[in-house]
């Protein structure tokens, strides 16, 4: 197990380094960031100073090593547009994304799991067919388009909900969140539903598949033969058995919710990290782009690593094959 762990860890480190080089070089190759941030009428001297201040006069490999060295000291560079440290910028935006993801995941679970259970309990009923059709829509219709429809219906036509922004925030424990105010809830509900649809479709399919399989299993037939009511069979026997794979896949998908938040945040003008990365691509804010992308790569490599380790823990065949 230890050898396997070391093998996987070193592989993960290599992946992060290779990806950071690709991202760094790739992002460096586009445009000249100085032209974007500086007034064209500025003197050559100001220009030279700025270029030196951001280290853009150095060769690429030295810029990369400076970047990596700074990362290890917790410094991700300075944003060229906001003129603040990237670390501070990302952490000021992170709570907004986290609360959006949390609310949407909760919505997905609260609606998706019961719907999936029902669709698997009566797979041939009209309601089940309807649920499955909706889950296909959740998968295939682009997120931004559904978000736009929501805005059109509930913000423009009906005027029930605000169309964008985070609303009023209030102090809760140690950070500011819009979940502490009713105005904040009014702002979060529509983007959260939008973000939850894909996940909800996935959950419905997973739970339904598990349910259909369980309905034919020995232990369910035995419980039936005992004369237990269906309600008890479903909620205390089947649910317990199918919850493990559902939770596993769902946990894995948390990372991708972060990626989809990019789209939802842009549609609803939600001031989270997803909006930040899109804005930084549009304004060629290099340090923010590189830092965000490298952070996301690290996040996904970590998730992968954890999954590999859990599988190795559960399945001896994986770790006996070694860390190849």
């Amino acid at each position: 197990m230890f050898g396997y762990l070391v093998g996987r860890l070193s592989q993960a480190v290599v992946v992060v380094f290779v990806m950071s080089i690709i991202v760094f070089v790739g992002v460096y190759a586009i445009g000249n960031p100085i032209d974007v941030m500086i007034d064209p009428g500025a003197t050559a001297e100001i220009r030279e100073n700025l270029i030196r201040q951001y280290g853009l006069d150095q060769p690429l490999w030295r810029q990369y090593f400076t970047f990596v060295g700074n990362v290890f000291q917790g410094d991700l560079g300075r944003s060229m547009v906001y003129n603040t440290s990237v670390t501070g910028l990302v952490f000021s935006r992170l709570p907004a994304t986290v609360e959006l993801v949390l609310v949407s995941v909760t919505i997905a679970a609260v609606i998706g799991i019961p719907a999936g259970l029902y669709a698997g309990y009566k797979p041939d009923g009209i309601a089940a067919k309807l649920i499955m059709a909706l889950s296909v829509l959740g998968f295939s219709v682009p997120t931004f388009w559904i978000g736009m429809l929501l805005i059109m219906a509930f913000a423009v036509e009906l005027g029930w909900l605000p169309s964008g922004g985070r609303g009023e925030v209030a102090e809760f424990l140690w950070f500011k969140t819009s979940l502490a105010t009713s105005d904040g809830w009014a702002h979060v509900i529509m983007p959260a539903i939008n973000l939850s649809l894909f996940k909800m479709g996935l959950l419905i399919r997973l739970t339904r598949a598990g349910m259909v399989e369980a309905m034919g299993a020995e232990y369910v037939r035995f419980a039936r033969a005992q004369g237990l009511p269906d309600r008890q069979i479903v909620f205390s026997h089947i649910l317990r058995n199918i919850s493990i794979p559902v939770i596993t896949v769902f946990g894995l998908e948390l990372g991708s919710t972060l990626a989809f938040a990019v789209v939802t945040e842009t549609v609803f003008n939600w001031p989270g990290v997803g909006k930040l990365i899109i804005d930084s691509i549009l304004t060629l804010d290099r340090p923010v782009m590189v830092s965000y992308l490298v952070m996301v790569v690290i996040l996904f490599v970590l998730i992968n690593l954890i999954v590999d380790l859990i599988y190795a823990r559960l399945d001896p065949r994986v770790r006996l094959k070694g860390g190849s």
Partner: peptide
């Protein structure tokens, strides 16, 4: 997610 990879490529 594919959208993330596409975003990285487009950024470059």
């Amino acid at each position: 997610p594919a959208i993330l990879l596409a975003l990285v490529m487009v950024a470059m």
